[in-house]
Design a binder for these strands. Structure first.
Lengths: 230, 230
DNA sequence: GCGTTCCTTGACGGGTTCTTGAACCTTCCT
DNA sequence: AGGAAGGTTCAAGAACCCGTCAAGGAACGC
């Protein structure tokens, strides 16, 4: 076995962490524990895990904040633990970008199964939960037409959103400007491809994306644009 | 901040309050008590609970009134306690926007179970009881085609109600004007999308909603409309 | 048939959004 | 190095969209 998958489990209930850790180790994962937000950030920073199991309610820095900070310079899978389903809405609602959530109480077996299922799915399907697509700290909710960056709402115009919606529906796939005109504008006849570039520029600005080294919308010279990997 | 879920229990029978409080604390909730309407409003104002267990019959300000006032600036779950199975009480209670009700006598275990079940359901399903959907102090009874704001009945025309019904069935989801024409009018062919805007305006006026910063029906420029979060 | 209620249509004003064109910059090719 | 092609940015005017109001007509009940 090459390089085991690393998981960090964060919860202030030590027995729970220990129990979960035992189950995960039994499956061959490398597991690290943390019992509050501060410690979590430390551990995560040093071991760079593939997966983080994170309680929403933590003493000190809470789970949402931990998730937000972690995503500033890494992009592990995050499974949130919540006490009430009510909070699931906050996770999805606040768009922190959890990849899955489990409500307490749960059986360790269930948690393990969920993690394994998540790791088995192709990445870009795993990265969408409740119809919300995620790219690092960017989330796109197609149904509600809402976009968040680092849990902050971003106001987009119709074309900007439709553009992002189209691109993000198929990450990594390159769309020509013609295709984008067809899909977003409805028809490409008698229309200057230049408008696409203008709206992409505006979209990038609102997402806090730079044109050189963009985090979300990449330019494919001579062709068009594509969304980064989910 | 591992803030526990906070519950306020309000009833003029002290032994009952104490009993219920004991059971709830055993489940890990933070519980506060109040024994009349005045006190209830005070306590609720200061602790901002997630859940309120509220007797309908209270000395001084009664349960309905307490619920009404609380909803003016907060939106906790409310479980009503009623002495009689009287339909009227239940109906009226629901109009104010109770999320569940329990008739006396009840076992503390039952009450605890009901509260936990409520917290476990996703919010927008938890927020509908007996087919009545709730959004702050607005309730929509799809079956009876009745709408109330702050417990006051609101008279809507057929189109206005159907519009509200469609939107409120899927909170947060954006409906294009075309979709609304299809669903509410039955077909969108040869029909001016403008009618939608007119009826939305009338609907908003009757709900006491303003067009800028609306509490219930939000405009999504260039697309259509959506109901706010439940 | 008459009155009332409800729905549609049209027009207008204010605000937002889209397009256009030009300048500037980067990349790639000769 | 120079030039061409394509990309980005910016600003200004045009186009569009929404909310509002009012008038006319349709549907309904009496």
């Amino acid at each position: 076995m090459n390089q085991a998958i690393t998981i960090v489990v964060v919860d202030d209930e030590r027995p729970l962490v220990d129990l979960v850790a035992r189950y995960l180790r039994r499956e061959g994962y490398e597991v690290h524990a943390a019992y509050d937000g501060e410690e979590a950030l430390e551990v995560i920073g040093s071991v760079e895990p593939d997966v983080i199991v994170l309680d929403l309610m933590l003493p000190g820095i809470d789970g949402l904040e931990v998730a937000r900070r972690v995503r500033e310079n890494a992009d592990p899978y995050i499974v949130m633990l919540t006490a009430r389903t009510d909070e699931v809405d906050r996770i999805v609602g606040l768009r922190v970008g959890a990849d899955d959530y489990v409500t307490k109480p749960f059986s360790p077996n269930e948690l393990v199964a969920r993690i394994q299922a998540m790791l088995r799915r192709p990445r870009h399907t795993a990265r969408s939960i409740g119809g919300v697509r995620r790219f690092g700290d960017l989330t796109v909710d197609a149904a509600a037409r809402e976009v968040h960056v680092a849990a902050e709402p971003v106001e987009l115009t119709r074309l900007e959103f439709d553009l992002l919606d189209t691109l993000s529906a198929q990450p990594r796939v390159v769309f020509s400007k013609q295709q984008l005109l067809d899909r977003v504008w409805g028809s490409s006849e008698y229309r200057d491809e230049h408008v696409v570039a203008v709206h992409v520029a505006n979209l990038r600005r609102k997402l806090g994306d730079t044109s050189d080294e963009p985090r979300f919308v990449r330019t494919v010279r001579g062709v068009g644009y594509r969304m980064v990997d989910a």
